[in-house]
Design a protein around this nucleic acid. Structure first.
Lengths: 337, 337
DNA sequence: CCTGGCACTCGCTATAATCGAGTGCCAACA
DNA sequence: TGTTGGCACTCGATTATAGCGAGTGCCAGG
């Protein structure tokens, strides 16, 4: 579609702009990248690239800046394919992560590593919980009509929720229910609870009614737990970038990051395919990300999968960022298996 | 120390500056506040207030701005004593909070309420865990040399941690240890674990050695859990303020907020006394807060106390903010008891 | 089809002029 | 002695103007 030279010019322009952040002109392009032609030729090519929507001029008679489509073309076919960071980095972050045992801490550490390697905001979504198998259930009385449900999964994740009961229940009866639940749920997947409830409910004995209530709460607990799974770090990194000198430009993003549910939706929506995904500027459905780029991928396999990624300006070092996200996700997958 | 009129002038000036954010001159002071004297007189008073360090001029021949000392005087003796928000607000946030049962969610909701009522950043520290009584301990095998410790407190808080064991342990033996721990720890305070360990350790049977390891992990778990207890929300509110238009001014704060441990230290250090505390600008030991003001108070009593507060610009509506923080903390105390 | 040259555009910077809110000071006054 | 009106002065903010320079589009020649 684009001629070879035109592709070369676009590649050089994107790289230059990513590096400097200033509109780039034909002269500096010829000088700093080994383009075998004169600046006039490059100007012609730039005119064509503007025609095709890959670059634009912020003001007439100024240098060019890539459009979202320009970045897209760069990411899809122009930049170096590898994009892996040097072995040093990989080693450094691996040793960091290896020390951690707790899942929460692991996600936190991963975010830190991602952010400090890319200098963008790192976002992580902890492994999905509803796919995990249930190992044990604790049921503790917290007063006549209140109880605490604690759920422990095979993979070692612990969830808990306070439950309002519809009737007064003695600690002894709660203990019975606890035993019954543990007997019937052990090893089951959380996702399998729903049909189980239908089976148990018809039996209408008071105890089974109680079981039904508790099951409801367990299911709710699992759904709600998702909200807490989004973690982010690295906003100060973005504040250091010149494009975010006026804080107003960062406001929508920070608002979005503070809203766990919105972040969860955004990340899940982006991660449709099972591979690394890049959303550039206006490609994002969320308007808050209209001037940002998002690189995400999932990690883990089957039972416990989550999402990691970075959010940065559209003027992002895609090659490096994609490499970092990919390696971090791979290492995370290894650690979790 | 300050004459009545001088105090009045300072009060008017602080209120005016809090309202407009612009340096305030003698004329507008006389006009908008009912000062019974001429602008020339006010100028004399302002000169004296500058002498005493309560106000300063950003440039010669411009209006005055309160210094940190000026705000301090205002907070300590000039502003209206009540500072309570209208009943409407109180009612609104009460109904919000009443719906929540889970402690984590409660803190989250509280932060939201605090932030939206004050338009500053809200920070909350969940109730201290090491003071809580232990209700139950779960000990689950996660492989030959790994185990999961789950700690449930009387108040319904659940902690968990993965443990690396020094020797191979069968699930059966873990179950034994679990029973032993539950028998001896039930109802004990977490803070009482340390001496207990010393008592158990000398007994040198292999099982007791295991108990000792697990106890170590439980203690570590409690200490570590503190890190997660700090929650904050509302940065976008600050971004809307004119003083933070250049994002560089907010960078130190955001960096601090992202560092849970640093926040924990800061909040604990500030909350020495058992009452509402105001730290204005340079009064903060953390340099990141050098241009911010911090209003915090604690809530709860004895067993489960935590901290709530707001962080905003030194040009803060102290009267309202103090009122909001106080009422929210009071309601929180009620809800938790 | 490429290239050097040339006129043109236009944002950025520097300089100068003006404006006005606010001050300090002083002399007059209660 | 404390208060007040008046006045000269300061200085940041705003506006206007000029010049610079990076960059462009276009054209004519190779």
């Amino acid at each position: 579609m684009l001629s070879d030279r035109r592709r070369l010019v676009l590649k050089a322009l994107v790289e230059e702009y990513i590096h400097t952040g200033e509109p780039v002109g034909s002269r500096s392009l010829v000088e700093r990248h080994r383009l075998r032609c004169s600046s006039a030729t490059v100007r012609n090519e730039l005119g064509a690239l503007e025609e095709s929507g890959h670059v634009y001029q912020p003001h007439i008679s100024s240098g060019r800046i890539p459009t979202d489509a320009g970045y897209r073309a760069f990411v899809d076919g122009l930049m170096g394919p590898g994009g892996l960071p040097r072995a040093v980095d990989a080693g450094a972050h691996r040793s960091h992560l290896a020390l951690v045992s707790e899942v929460d801490d692991l996600m936190r550490q991963t975010s830190q590593v991602l952010s400090s390697l890319t200098h963008y905001v790192a976002v992580t979504l902890a492994p999905t919980i509803s796919l995990a198998r249930i190992r044990r259930i604790d049921l503790l009385s917290m007063g006549l009509r209140r109880a605490l449900v604690v759920l422990i999964t095979e993979s070692g994740k612990v969830l808990n929720r306070h439950v309002e009961l519809s009737e007064d229940v003695t600690p002894e009866r709660l203990a019975e229910v606890e035993r019954a639940l543990n007997a019937s749920l052990d090893g089951k997947r959380a996702a399998e609870l729903l049909p189980l409830r239908a089976v148990l409910q018809p039996a209408r004995s008071p105890q089974d009614g109680l079981i039904s209530v508790v099951l409801d709460q367990i299911i709710g607990c699992l759904e709600e737990a998702d909200r807490d799974r989004v973690y982010h770090v690295g906003v100060p990194e973005l504040l250091a970038l010149p494009e975010f000198a006026e804080s107003a430009r960062l406001r929508p993003l920070i608002g979005l990051l503070e809203d766990g549910i919105a972040m969860l939706e955004t990340l899940s929506e982006v991660m449709q395919a099972n591979e690394i995904t890049v959303r550039i500027g206006s490609e994002n459905t969320r308007s808050e990300l209209g001037e940002m780029s998002l690189i995400v991928t999932n990690y883990g396999t089957g039972d416990s999968d989550g999402i990691v990624g970075v959010i940065g300006p559209t003027r992002m070092d895609y090659q490096r960022a994609i490499g970092v996200v990919r390696t971090v996700a791979d290492d995370l997958s290894d650690l979790l298996s």
